[in-house]
C-alpha cells in the first residue's frame, strides 16, 4: 500500500472553519473519484472531528487545528484531525452515543458515533492537557464491489 498523495491544512479553531475544512477535504478527495454517498460521509465525518476539536479541544480558546489527508493506491483515504487542546479524560465514555459534556449546547453527543458509522476505521488518541488526534480511514468502493 503506497501513498499517492497527501496534504496538510492548519487553521484557527474558529467555527467558521468547519465548512472550510470539510469542503477542502471533499475537494482533495475528488481525485479518487468517490461516489456522492462516500463524499457526503467523508464531509460529515470531517465536520464532526473539526467541530469536536473547536468545541471540546479548545473550548472557546484559540488554537490550531490540523487536518491531514493521505490517499493510498488502494483507494483508501486516511484523514486525521489534531488539536493541542485540553484532551479527553475518558475516550470510551466520550465515544458513547448521546454522551456530551455540554448538555445545554447545540450538539447532541453524536459526533464520534457519526464518525464511526460513516467511516470504516476510527482511532482516537488523547492526553489530558496535551490534545487529541483523531485518525479515520475510509475504503472507497467498499459499498459497490
Amino acid at each position: 500500500m503506497e501513498i499517492t498523495n497527501e496534504m496538510r491544512l492548519m487553521f484557527l479553531s474558529k467555527s467558521e472553519n468547519e465548512s472550510f475544512a470539510r469542503v477542502t477535504a471533499a475537494a482533495f478527495i475528488s481525485q479518487l473519484d468517490p461516489t456522492v454517498s462516500e463524499l457526503v460521509e467523508i464531509k460529515t465525518a470531517v465536520s464532526e472531528a473539526v467541530s469536536n476539536a473547536i468545541i471540546h479541544g479548545y473550548d472557546g480558546t484559540v488554537g490550531i487545528v490540523t487536518l491531514e489527508m493521505r490517499l493510498f493506491d488502494t483507494k483508501i483515504v486516511e484523514i486525521s484531525v489534531t488539536d493541542s487542546g485540553k484532551g479527553i479524560a475518558d475516550i470510551e465514555k466520550a465515544k458513547e452515543p448521546l454522551f456530551t459534556t455540554k448538555e445545554n449546547e447545540e450538539r447532541a453527543g453524536m459526533g464520534f458515533t457519526v464518525m464511526e458509522t460513516f467511516m470504516d476505521q476510527l482511532n482516537v488518541e488523547s492526553e489530558v492537557g496535551k490534545g487529541t488526534r483523531i485518525v479515520m480511514k475510509k475504503y472507497l468502493d467498499a459499498e459497490h464491489t
Partner: peptide, 13 residues
C-alpha cells in the same frame, strides 16, 4: 445541502 450531528442537537432542542 449539508447537515452533521448539529442537526440532531437543533431538532432535539
Amino acid at each position: 445541502s449539508f447537515m452533521d450531528s448539529s442537526g440532531i442537537g437543533l431538532i432535539a432542542n
